[in-house]
Amino acid sequence: MNESIALMLFFSATVMAAGYVRGYGGFGFSMITVAALSLFLAPAQVVPVVLLLEVAASLFLLPGIWRLVDWPKLAWLLAGVVAGTPVGVWMLGNVSPAPMKMAVAVIIFMLALMLRQGFVVKRRLKRPETMAAGLASGILNGAAAIGGPPAILFFFSSPAGAAVSRASLIAFFLLTDILAAGFCIATSLMTVGHARQAAILALPMAAGLFLGRLAFIHTPETVFKKRVLLYLMILSLLTLVRSAKEFLT
């Protein structure tokens, strides 16, 4: 099989699987796609495409959950994101591919491990702490399209419940990814070629989103999340090994 065709099939399968996870839990798309695609491409090639797909995924999921969004918390979180995103985008354009891949792999592994072990914030965060979580999300989102975990930890530690947390995350991803995409366009890191690649991958992603929403009512949430996070940890280790070889050669 032609190598380019094999890669496209792998990318399509990855995006569909990530869409399935996103449709189920409202998060995880970027973590899966960046970890998998970074095995073959530099972050600067992967991140713009993932940002465009994330925006499309949020628009797909947004109807019906708008009124559940916790807008006050989201506003303070986004204030931190606005401050952190330019730093992340600068890192994306100025850090060489191999070290960036290694950093992304380590970040994904550690965050996935924390989430899989059930790490949560045990008290209600104040405004400065909320903004700090947003700052971390902005930097990670701009640099590697993995800004979700700090926000996930924040919202799912809230006493508001899973429905409100999931809705707030969907709105969060829509707004932050639009912001990060805007910075990428302004710094010429996002091109028409990235848009074409995202358009090609949009169909398998939509299929995954649809199937994920259907599976939501049939699979225990804790079991599903543990499996997904284990998959992320394995992918991040593979990425780290491959990137370390590139860095040393």
Rank of each mutant, 00 (worst) to 15 (best):
S38N: 12
G138S: 09
A198D: 00
G138Q: 08
R67T: 09
I217E: 10
R242D: 06
F154G: 00
L189W: 00
K101E: 03
P43K: 10
N94C: 04
S243C: 11
L41Q: 11
L62H: 11
K245P: 02
S165E: 01
P97S: 12
R242F: 07
G93Y: 08
G148S: 12
A17Y: 09
L74I: 07
V15K: 04
P150F: 01
T191G: 10
S168D: 08
L237K: 04
R22K: 15
T191D: 07
P128Y: 05
S137A: 13
L61S: 10
A180S: 15
P43V: 08
R123F: 11
L77V: 12
L214H: 12
A56Y: 04
L238Y: 07
M1A: 14
L174K: 00
G147M: 02
I200M: 14
P48M: 02
Q117C: 11
R213L: 08
S58L: 04
L74Q: 11
G28C: 06
I217Y: 06
F60H: 11
L153I: 15
S137E: 08
G118I: 01
V121N: 07
F172I: 00
A112Y: 01
L237E: 03
A79D: 02
S4C: 07
L174S: 03
G212F: 05
L68Q: 15
T222A: 14
F40N: 07
A244L: 13
A206I: 09
P97H: 12
A13D: 01
A98W: 10
P220R: 01
L51Q: 13
S30A: 15
S188W: 11
A215L: 03
A36N: 04
F10N: 00
A181H: 06
P220E: 05
G134V: 03
I107V: 15
G19T: 07
M16K: 03
L111A: 14
S236H: 06
L214F: 13
L37C: 10
P159D: 09
V21G: 04
V21I: 12
G64R: 07
M8T: 10
M114K: 12
I139Y: 03
M114A: 15
I107Y: 15
L174G: 05
V241C: 05
L211A: 14
N94G: 09
A35T: 05
L52I: 11
T14P: 01
G138H: 02
L175R: 09
S158P: 00
A207W: 10
L41T: 00
M190C: 13
A133I: 14
V87Q: 02
Y231E: 01
G138A: 10
